[in-house]
Amino acid sequence: MTYITDIFLIAISAALINNFVLYYFVGICPFIGVSRNVDIAFGMGFAVTFVMTIAGSISWAITTLVLVPGAPFTRFIAGFFLDPGQAVQIDLTTLSYIVYIFAIASSVQFVEMYIRKFFPSLYKSFGVFLPLITTNCAILFACLTIMSHVAGVENPADVWGLSKALALSFFGGVGFTIAIVIMAGIREELDFCDVPECLQGAAITLIVAGILAMAFMGFTGVDSGLRVALTGG
């Protein structure tokens, strides 16, 4: 029960409470850049969700198998050179950034080729967005969040499994979609507003993003309340 509650809370938290865009302010470039039109924003959000889920699970696997101290792969190789006590101490988490970017870029490339071959209509609707989100910081942020729950956790019971990593990355993408679609809706209306000349363009967009972020602050504390309600204390 607590496991399912945990996953539920991770999902709610990633999508609404700690929304990647409006709470952590990552992924701002597509949030500002492709939020002119609701349809395009929805496509972008869908593509980000897709890539984030794949990249999140790949980076969870790499972190668990290779990077953390005592990871099976690292321990096995180091076992040839060092005694077992030292081999479990080898920590490769310094590689995290470069390895994640590497994994994200390669998986996006792979996914692009795959859907181009087997789902041409999906490829057409993704269009330019799929290669564009290769270097989206929201996706790297999801990978790093997953890493912080796998590496350096004191209590072994708190280490995240694949399902939690998947929940965070998928619902992080859903949260991104929610934020960018709301933003696109506001910006479509903004076209008909008499914006002062000094605030036109990016300035008013950032102000709107700030107000939107303040609105999302209303979700703060919902997670602890939900936890009490679900677990009964």
């Binding site: 290779v66 690292t74 190789i77 180091a78 050179f81 060092l82 080898i90 920590d91 490769l92 310094t94 590689l95 470069i98 390895v99 590497f102």
Partner: peptide, 10 residues
């Protein structure tokens, strides 16, 4: 060994 493993991983 750490450096070697890092390089090897990459």
């Amino acid at each position: 060994v750490t450096v070697g493993l890092a390089a090897g991983t990459m």
